[in-house]
Write a protein that binds this DNA or RNA. Structure first.
Lengths: 231, 231, 231, 231
DNA sequence: TATGAATGAGGGTTCATTCAT
DNA sequence: TATGAATGAACCCTCATTCAT
């Protein structure tokens, strides 16, 4: 049940189920019915249960599968020339992946129960290696632990998911600044974008005419009411 | 249906339902059955429906209720003597509240549909006021918008929730560093804590004996296998 | 509970409930919630129950109320100059009323339980009187009983309800022909309307062009397939 | 979902559900709970939903099933030797079927939505064919349309249902008289049955003794009160 | 072994009826 | 007495899991 099935067709079924589940979870999360996953995989519901004891077990298997790929990437970056770029680039890369596939985010934040020790350790170890090299190169402040970095990484995924509007990756850039040594921030000149004076919604500058001060009539009205009455 | 009921018992029931729903959502999120909420509130399921047209409406009412309290706090801090402390203190306070009540986190990240404009704007406006004063005082970098701060705030809630172990608020402190002007970070001396050489789990120093290098026998074994074989 | 309440306001409430229930039943039948009836009547649900033991009892009271009015009409027609016109006119009148108020139909076809004997007898007696005079005048065949007429009457209501399209009352006219003495039918020249040759749907003649033979392309196609292939 | 299931047990279950639903609807109409249907069929509620997407869909399937059988009968009568007998016999036969199974009545009076065009047309077409032959043979008046016949047919079902007492089919006979050419009625000699002088309920003649004049003591009492008081 | 049909415990929601105010 | 809030059984429907084929 848990090991790798031997027969070729059984193996193929298992992979198709994993793939279908991954795609389904990526889009709809946990709430996609198992029958739907079976349908996408082109197998019967019973076959899913032959390969995975419960729906939850299937979910965990998907997640473990994804962690493997992420760990691979970390390991391949270990010997990069620039440790700072390797480290920050890796964080960005993982977050980008998670934007596409929500399951990745769950993979890194969910407990993996039985398998936890193994998978979890693998990822943490690989991330730690990148972190230490970056710290040794002075690119990351010394007082952060790998667990904190890992948590921040998941936080970035969640934040980017909350703000899908551009600029993409802004929250990750910000969060990375929290990790950088004090003198190497990504701080920019204040953007001189204009925002609604009432609700701070960014205003898209109109090509012509007088620049807008409010994002909507209702905010303009609100501002009007706030102005002191002339005596 | 939507206004405050007049009768004392009805009012009391409504409050009890809101409270029970709040607690239930805080722990289990959306998935707690409505019957369970009714049971906790000590009323019948029908009574819940008398007060809230659907489960979703109940959820939104809970969320709106919480936002109100959070907005109140922001407004009360607007005239604090120290804008920096007011701003960062507020972020910390909100995150702490959210640690106890997960619904707060949803409240700030969920769309509130019809009411969204109003509640959402109220919160954003209050947060923006705090932010601008802190920026004016040089305590927050100029290139962040209130929307970014808000997202970071929700991110902190989520991250703290992922790492309930001490030190509490560490992720928030880190995230705040991302907002601070470069020279005012909370960077500390590297903690000279020792961590497992394999999986980076922090090691609690034993009072006596030789300091441990690994967190567990399995990691020790793993380290052993990695050592180059003597020729 | 069952008798007439004495106090003026109580009496008024009872009447308003009856009226509201009548209107609600007329439109939606039995399935309108009792709360809705109470709301329409401008009273609380409890007040409805003070006046009528159950929803069913309320329904029966409505029905009895309507029968009263129908019986009144029958009695007022008893002394009309033309017994045939009185009889057939009465049937038509009742059916028309029922077209507007479905509750009337139920009133005449539903068992009235306890009250049945009284109300039911009243109506049957009144109808029988009209019938006998018409039979005596040779306007109605001798071999029908009042029970049959009554059933036919309800049948007309139901049929008209099934065919709300014009000509209104056609089914009633037809059914009345079943009652007439053989020589006094309402038979008309065959309407030379054209109907679809396939499904018999009446065809609205176009003002210009060749007259249509089929109601729709699909019927034309069907007709085509049915034609014998040329050898 | 919609087609015929392949497995023998599935097919059997589907048939049992249809049958159970048919019987349940026949007795209680739409309001029978779906769980009850499942129970009667000896399956779980889920199985019903596997075969029919909604309760409404199940109802429509039942109805469509019945129409099929009725249409079959009409088509088999098309080439009968006596068109009059075929036509009137068919009406009687359909009504008799509907007496046993109320769902048939609904089948012919309910809209069948998507399938309506097809099923509805099939039935109307078949009925129209019978009608035209009977009209050509002079057995049916020329001024009735197939739609009217159809409505009358449903009306007969409803009327017979309202009067389950003997003689069976009397209402249908009457209604058919409405369709007959004037000279071919089923008018009989007036039955010299005696009826209650008060409420017109037919009196079953007692084998011995003086013939009854009233159907019940209460009617006798009523008659007594109506008699003019002797001066 | 693979299929997909069957199960049945809930889930959200409605509404006739009761009862505290 | 009138109100309308509270009750809770019942309804339709879903879906994780089991099992006959």
């Amino acid at each position: 049940m848990s090991g790798q099935p031997q027969r070729a067709d059984a193996r193929r079924n298992r992979d198709r189920i994993l793939q279908a589940a991954f795609e389904a979870f990526a889009v709809d999360g946990h709430l996609v019915p198992l029958d739907e996953i079976a349908r996408r995989a082109g197998v019967g519901a019973g076959t899913v249960y032959r390969n995975f004891a419960t729906k939850e077990a299937l979910f965990k298997a998907v997640v473990a599968d994804r962690i493997d790929r992420i760990v691979d990437e970390a390991q391949s970056l270990l010997h990069a020339a620039d440790p700072a770029e390797a480290f920050y680039g890796y964080l960005t890369w993982v977050v980008e992946r998670a934007m596409i596939n929500h399951a990745i985010c769950d993979a890194l934040s969910t407990d993996l129960d039985d398998d936890k020790t193994r998978k979890d350790t693998e990822f943490t170890t690989a991330l730690d290696a990148l972190l230490r090299k970056a710290q040794a190169a002075g690119a990351v402040r010394q007082d952060v632990t790998v667990q904190e970095v890992r948590t921040l990484l998941v936080g970035c995924m969640l934040m980017e998911r909350l703000r899908p509007q551009p600029p993409r990756g802004r929250m990750t850039t910000l969060a990375c600044d929290a990790l950088r040594s004090a003198t190497k921030r990504n701080e920019t000149k204040p953007r001189n974008e204009t925002r609604c004076e009432i609700c701070a919604t960014p205003l898209t500058p109109a090509p012509t005419g007088r620049p807008a001060r409010y994002c909507s009539p209702s905010c303009r009205q609100k501002a009007h009411r706030r102005r002191p009455k002339p005596t």
